[in-house]
C-alpha cells in the first residue's frame, strides 16, 4: 500500500510541476517502483480519444501504435510496450535524453509544448540532433498530431568527461 501511496505522490508531484519536477529522492533508487505504474493514468474507456502514431527505428523499421490524446510520447511507449531499447531512462524528468525523437517539420511546428532551455540542454546531449528534434517525454499528443510519424535515432553524442 505504501508503495502505491508514494507512487501517487510522485505522479502528482511530477505533473504538478509540468514534468520538470525532481521526483522526490528515492533512496536506493526506489528499487521496487515499477515504471509502468508510474506513468499510467487510469482513464475511463469512454473519454479516451486515441490517435495513431508511428515510431521509426534507425534501421528503418516501423512500429505503428495508438496513443491517448494528452499523453506524452513516453507514456505512449510505456503503455504500449513499444520495443525501443533504453527509451525513457529517467522516466520523463528531463534528465537523460533517451527519449529523443525527430519530427517532420510540419508536425514539429504544431507541437503545443514550447521548447524550454532545459529541454534544449538535454537535447544537446542527444545523438543525431536535428532542428526538429524533441524529447518525447515533453511532447503530448493532440488531435492535430494524429498519424504523426517520428524517427528514433540510435547512438550517442558523447559530450561528457570527468
Amino acid at each position: 500500500m505504501r508503495i502505491y501511496g508514494n507512487l501517487l505522490k510522485k505522479l502528482f508531484y511530477t505533473y504538478q510541476n509540468n514534468n520538470l519536477a525532481r521526483v522526490s529522492s528515492a533512496i536506493s533508487g526506489g528499487y521496487h517502483i515499477n515504471r509502468r505504474l508510474l506513468v499510467t493514468t487510469p482513464v475511463a474507456k469512454t473519454d479516451v480519444e486515441m490517435v495513431d502514431i508511428t515510431f521509426v527505428r534507425s534501421d528503418g523499421s516501423k512500429i505503428a501504435t495508438k496513443g491517448k490524446i494528452g499523453d506524452n510520447l513516453l507514456d505512449v511507449v510505456v503503455n504500449n510496450n513499444v520495443d525501443l531499447d533504453g527509451f525513457g531512462a529517467c522516466e520523463g524528468t528531463l534528465a537523460c535524453s533517451t527519449c529523443h525523437v525527430i519530427f517532420k517539420q510540419k508536425d514539429f511546428d504544431i507541437i503545443k509544448e514550447k521548447l524550454t532551455d532545459e529541454e534544449l540542454d538535454m537535447l544537446d546531449m542527444a545523438f543525431g540532433l536535428c532542428d526538429t528534434s524533441r524529447l518525447g517525454c515533453q511532447v503530448c499528443l493532440t488531435k492535430e498530431l494524429a498519424g504523426v510519424e517520428v524517427k528514433v535515432p540510435e547512438g550517442v553524442n558523447d559530450a561528457r568527461s570527468s
Binding site: R22, V23, S24, S25, A26, S28, G29, G30, Y31, H32, I33, N34, R35, L38, A89, C90, E91, T93, L94, A95, C96
Partner: peptide, 21 residues
C-alpha cells in the same frame, strides 16, 4: 548511480527502476 551521481540529481537515479526489473 548510487555512489557517483550527485544527491541533488534524484531524477538521474530513476534508471535504477529499470535495473531492478
Amino acid at each position: 548511480v548510487r555512489y557517483g551521481v550527485a544527491p541533488d540529481h534524484p531524477e538521474v537515479k530513476n534508471v535504477t527502476h529499470t535495473f531492478t526489473t
